[in-house]
Computed example of a mutant assay.
Amino acid sequence: MSIIVGFVSTPAGEAALTAGIAEATLRNEDLVIVNSAREGALVDKSVAAEDVLARAARRATEAGVKATVIQPPYQHDLADEFLDIAREANASLIVIGLRHRSQVGKFILGSHAQRILMQADRPVLAVKADGSNF
Score class of each variant (00 low, 15 high):
residue 94 I to D: 01
residue 11 P to A: 05
residue 76 H to C: 11
residue 94 I to N: 05
residue 9 S to R: 08
residue 112 H to C: 06
residue 95 V to Y: 05
residue 100 H to D: 13
residue 65 V to I: 03
residue 131 G to R: 02
residue 77 D to H: 13
residue 103 Q to T: 14
residue 112 H to G: 05
residue 124 V to L: 07
residue 54 A to F: 00
residue 78 L to W: 04
residue 57 A to H: 01
residue 34 V to M: 04
residue 124 V to G: 09
residue 111 S to G: 01
residue 73 P to T: 05
residue 99 R to G: 10
residue 118 M to R: 15
residue 67 A to M: 04
residue 79 A to K: 06
residue 134 F to E: 10
residue 121 D to I: 11
residue 92 S to C: 12
residue 40 G to N: 03
residue 134 F to P: 14
residue 118 M to K: 11
residue 122 R to P: 08
residue 5 V to I: 07
residue 1 M to W: 08
residue 130 D to E: 10
residue 48 A to K: 00
residue 102 S to A: 10
residue 14 E to R: 12
residue 63 A to Y: 01
residue 85 I to D: 03
residue 38 R to E: 12
residue 24 A to L: 08
residue 3 I to T: 11
residue 33 I to Q: 01
residue 32 V to H: 08
residue 31 L to Q: 02
residue 110 G to N: 04
residue 20 G to R: 05
residue 36 S to Q: 13
residue 120 A to V: 04
residue 35 N to F: 00
residue 10 T to C: 08
residue 75 Q to I: 11
residue 111 S to D: 01
residue 13 G to D: 03
residue 42 L to A: 15
residue 67 A to I: 00
residue 27 R to G: 07
residue 109 L to V: 06
residue 99 R to T: 12
residue 13 G to N: 02
residue 12 A to K: 02
residue 67 A to H: 05
residue 28 N to Y: 08
residue 37 A to V: 14
residue 33 I to Y: 00
residue 123 P to W: 05
residue 84 D to H: 14
residue 25 T to A: 13
residue 59 R to C: 07
residue 95 V to D: 04
residue 93 L to K: 07
residue 44 D to Y: 14
residue 61 T to P: 08
residue 49 A to P: 00
residue 36 S to M: 14
residue 81 E to C: 11
residue 122 R to K: 09
residue 26 L to M: 13
residue 18 T to H: 12
residue 129 A to R: 13
residue 93 L to A: 05
residue 108 I to T: 06
residue 46 S to T: 11
residue 1 M to A: 09
residue 109 L to G: 13
residue 8 V to A: 10
residue 104 V to D: 10
residue 66 K to G: 14
residue 75 Q to D: 11
residue 35 N to G: 00
residue 100 H to G: 11
residue 19 A to R: 12
residue 83 L to A: 03
residue 105 G to K: 04
residue 41 A to L: 05
residue 81 E to H: 15
residue 132 S to Y: 09
